[in-house]
Amino acid sequence: MSAESLILFFIVGAFLVGIALLFSSLVPPTSTNPQKAEAYECGIPTEGITWLQFNVGYYLFAIIFLVFDVETVFIFPWAVMMKTLGMKAFIEIVIFFFVLGIGLLYAWKKGALKWE
């Protein structure tokens, strides 16, 4: 089978969820109750709004991740072709990794790898 048939798996997956949701929304008995629709917070009504600006503390991680993820894309072709490219490419990739490592070390020393 070809890669186009991926669409099949997409459809089958969606079908599985869709049919079950449909069944579940039609067959089981339903009862409405305003308290049922409350968000669960250990039995206490929620105070304040939920979606407010949130200090997640991993923006820096996201940025470092972005850097590394892009770099991984560069590594993939080399990894596949490494045997044919030989020693020269290896030395080049060592230099590339060295630069990456310096970057990581810098971020580490700067304290970017800390969840605040």
């Binding site: 997956g13 969606a14 969820v17 949701l21 579940s24 929304s25 089981p28 008995p29 339903t30 968000a39």
Partner: peptide
């Protein structure tokens, strides 16, 4: 679980709320 009621949550983002299981399964 199939026979249980699907409870909708007040003020939830309905589209994304229903979309999430699709994404996970697909």
């Amino acid at each position: 679980l199939l026979m249980k009621e699907l409870v909708y949550i007040k003020d939830s983002d309905k589209l994304l709320f229903n979309l999430a299981p699709f994404i996970v399964i697909i």
